[in-house]
Design a protein around this nucleic acid. Structure first.
Lengths: 204, 204, 204, 204
DNA sequence: AATGAATGAGCTTTCATTCAT
DNA sequence: GATGAATGAAAGCTCATTCAT
């Protein structure tokens, strides 16, 4: 796909080089984690000199931060954004199915997990997942987020479920979950979403 | 707490030294992961020489494997084992609450995540989580496990939830989930367990 | 002697640095053997950082292999190559005399002795000495080498003599052999060469 | 053969334990050299505790020295001692043939080569080889040894040949020399011995 | 006499990083 | 803008040695 990576040394196109480094780094961080991602490998993936990483991102942590910042928002944007619990469950079942995220190799939420130890990076990660939780609340249609701790906690349990699925699939390879398709995930996820986020019925 | 670690060099008690190394390693593996756990630090925690790790565990991988093997089974044993979905939900809410597992620092399932790269260790991890899923099925009371993929998949979603909670709490520190008590987790977990594992009612 | 090693950090000249490392390593391998040669010492000899050895030679074995490959062929080349038994004996008496090979410290054949344990390196060593034997046959003027085992065996006894002289001088320091000059070695070596390689006369 | 090594822990027989350690060490020093011989392996060969080596030999160097001292004198003793050049050549061809010295694995002269760095050990080695040279002179029947440098040098060339054959066979595996039998070595060695040590004839 | 626990020093290797061109 | 040479720190591992029983 990325034709630019194949045809000779990428010369004199700073933006493209930077972008290619970012993508290669994201993929490695996602698949291997922070520690096992080496800058040499990232540079080699793109076919440029190692020192360019320093130039563009200053350090390994800078690269990681940039990769984190370029991660897509999980629930999509605008017209694709799920409008109700039904849509939320469907969106989740797709993004948690096997083989989604081919450009990263694994679910990019994995990049959020074990990081660099830098506090500002930790804050970034917290913010990303916090936002994910609030998006879920919003998509579940039950009114504004607020500081309603109990509903937020429930949304975060759903976030944790997503993270857990990604981790268990990638790092452990547990089957049948590893190979679950969107179709197989749809029903249980719909039931979980309902159980967690449906407005309290009379008998609850 | 570990008084024995403080008072001078632990001398001439191989079993105690081995055990202390195991505990220190388990804690570090759980909190920091495999890569960031250094043998020097583990030895320093216990106050013994690095070479003893080789003596007792042969290598870093050997130490990791031993730590993995000494991890408690998550749903407990014998009379403590949950008998129905109610008990299962309660057990989960306790072991997923903040501050459980003080001896590890974090939920020991984290040790199962990113490991050594050794295939036999990977198999160990898979087995542990697979077993966890089957225990959940068993505790949910819905008949024998079998090769009923759909019910196993649902149980593994519950496993993934547990893993996700541990990861999100430890690696990201997402609040309010990070500080959730067993009391706060009880209701949502009961509802999730029911949603996932209750026998299909007429209208399902 | 090596002025370049003395005057400050050798900067920005990869070829020279590589060459200097190679020479320092050859000398240490020759004088001390594989095991007692440490990469730290080699780097310190040249005055550069240890990691450059990895850069240029990848590993200790790589360095050893490179040193082996850069060892001179013992009987010389082209016009210097001995043409008959007389010339062969003279060449041997020179290269086996005390103080030959000042750039290695000892006769470089010593590098061929105890090596790295790598089978490919062993093959290199075997090949070098095998070739030495065949060169001797060639220089002794008695027709083509062929698979004439007996003449090859005799040539290899001469190789063994050379190796033995180097070893006994260097590792044991046996005198008077240790200090023998080319002049002192000339007569006995000529007689040995004749005894081993002269074509069978009538009365033999 | 060594039945005592097989039947259970060798208990309460200091002399036998000491002797067994010495033999195991000699074999390893001969086959592997000083550096690659580990005390753990030596102790394991015999089946006793590592600390016994310290008890009996004080240190690795002490063990080496003891092994050196227990090495047999190469040309034999008393009635087996060669009486003339003929007998000398025959003795050499036997002890330099493939498969001699089964109890060491290789020719024990190899133990004399690269040692510990201790000067007193070096002196031991020098003495052993010096003595070997003088024995050769004596056996060659040409009058008393004296300080006749030239004849001693010639004898030492023969010593060097023996060392070289052992080294080339063991460390390099050069064929056909590696597999040479006493029969194959007899003729060339006789000629070398004559060339080196025969009393000067008229025309010399 | 013999054992096994524990130590300290040193080695190769691996990286992120910095500097000169 | 880009490269490649060079550095420093730290990690896992190995081994001879010492100490208490």
């Amino acid at each position: 796909m990325e034709t630019s990576e194949a045809d000779g040394p990428r010369r004199r196109d700073a933006a493209a080089t930077r972008q290619a480094l970012l993508e290669a780094a994201s993929s490695r961080f996602t698949r291997l984690g922070y520690d096992r991602t080496t800058l040499r490998d990232v540079a080699a993936d793109v076919g440029v000199n190692l020192a360019l990483i320093k130039r563009y991102f200053d350090s390994k942590e800078g690269l990681f931060k940039a990769a984190l910042a370029s991660t897509p928002r999980f629930l999509g944007r605008d017209e694709h954004f799920p409008q109700d619990r039904e849509g939320l469950a469907e969106a989740l079942s797709h993004q948690l199915s096997a083989g989604a995220w081919p450009e990263f190799g694994e679910h990019p939420v994995l990049m959020l997990l074990r990081g660099s130890g830098d506090e500002r990076v930790d804050a970034l990660r917290r913010k990303a997942l916090d936002e994910f939780g609030r998006q879920i609340l919003e998509a579940s249609g039950g009114g504004p987020a607020g500081e309603d701790d109990e509903r937020l906690l429930r949304a975060q349990l759903l976030v944790a479920l997503g993270v857990g699925v990604a981790v268990v699939r990638s790092a452990v390879g547990l089957r049948p979950l590893r190979d679950a398709t969107a179709g197989q995930l749809a029903a249980p996820l719909r039931e979980i979403v309902d159980a967690l986020l449906a407005p309290p019925a009379d008998d609850r």
